[in-house]
Design a protein around this nucleic acid. Structure first.
Lengths: 125, 125, 125, 125
DNA sequence: GTGGTCTAGACCACT
DNA sequence: GTGGTCTAGACCACG
């Protein structure tokens, strides 16, 4: 878990993103118990309210659930997790293509640039 | 120039982005005169100060320059424009790869997903 | 911090200059918290936006940084501070020599005038 | 005469400065006829009004005078020229010391920096 | 008519 | 309470 946050995005959104990723990449497995709000808040050196806000939102998405007095847990519903993953990927791909098009680069060229790897120096008009 | 702004990003940043793209994609050519602050502000239905802020930033990047009392112009330095374009592409590519890696997808797989086009439905763990 | 501004220079530039000097001369130490925008604006009897503009610019130079909702702070990077100081000195010296040369006074003579102290009365052609 | 103007100072002030220097450094001698407003304006690629404004101000200082229908001339009063020169030098010296003091450098140190001049990596001609 | 500066005041998100 | 953004509107110098 990273301890550094960017300044241009609300911290709680960055925390949501982090935990999402850790669920999707199986760092937290389905039905795993999550650290408590207090633990999170110490780990991340962040106000507990901020953690709380992030977790609340994750719960509303269905990625985590709360057991009163026991804590918060990763959902057991693997389909939700998979769907979230697919959605994220799909968004990434769509955005990538769209941004490239805005610069005037079509899909074909975009793929070429991507596969040409780090030779980004020789991009021509 | 688009007349609609997203709610999740400051308007002035969106204006910067728009004009950047219009310079990079040669809608505005080097040394072209830009619309005046007032014209922009009417076109975009935005306060002149907001436009001013965006243009000031673009000037600090070096993409535009100001002639006292004459208006603002696209830089004549094509190298700056090209560099900006390359930088934008490079950032897009880098971010794409990085985001995919965060999800647990390496470069090779990322490219495959991209070229597989819109069949993102069958992405497995 | 001075409460009087000259009329021939934008206030925000004078504020930038003031704060720059206070950082360079260690009135504000690295990582010191700066007064809030609102405090500054009251102290200086200036609109908050004007202060904001000045501070934004100082941030873009790297002399100060912002912590979301916590305030603005002097950079912890002493190298930046030292470099800024050196740059300012270098500019002063360079400009001094250049201005003297424009008047037709070479470096050697310039130094002489300077060391002759305030006897500028006996300057001959 | 330079054909390039800085963007941060009114052109007419820069013209005043230029002509002042050319008088002080004897490029224009006392009672020399100056180029006409039109000539100046073409030379400098500047609006005649701008030249006019500069010359008017120079006349009010007493550095030039107008002969109706004949044109404008450098003053014949050498004392005025000399005084202007002395004033400019004195201002330069005063400002230099003052700026250095603002950075926390006293006169003695300032002189040292100036004379050490070219050994300082950042101070070059 | 052009950009630059400034004020006054408002609203927002975040902690 | 903090900074960030935006609006509305004004004034100025310049050319």
């Amino acid at each position: 878990m990273s301890y550094e946050f960017k300044n241009d995005t609300p911290i709680y959104l960055q925390i949501i993103e982090q935990i999402k990723l850790e669920i999707i990449t199986k760092k937290y497995l389905p039905n795993d118990k999550l650290p408590s709000v207090r633990e999170f808040s110490m780990q991340l050196e962040v106000n507990p309210n901020t953690v709380q806000k992030a977790l609340t939102e994750l719960e509303s998405i269905g990625l985590i659930y709360t057991e009163r007095t026991n804590g918060k847990f990763v959902t057991g519903d693997k389909e939700i997790i998979e769907r979230t993953k697919r959605d994220m990927i799909s968004v990434l791909v769509k955005n990538f293509y769209k941004s490239m098009e805005n610069i005037g680069i079509n899909k074909k060229e975009a793929v070429k640039i991507l596969t040409d790897g780090d030779k980004n120096e020789d991009i021509r008009d």
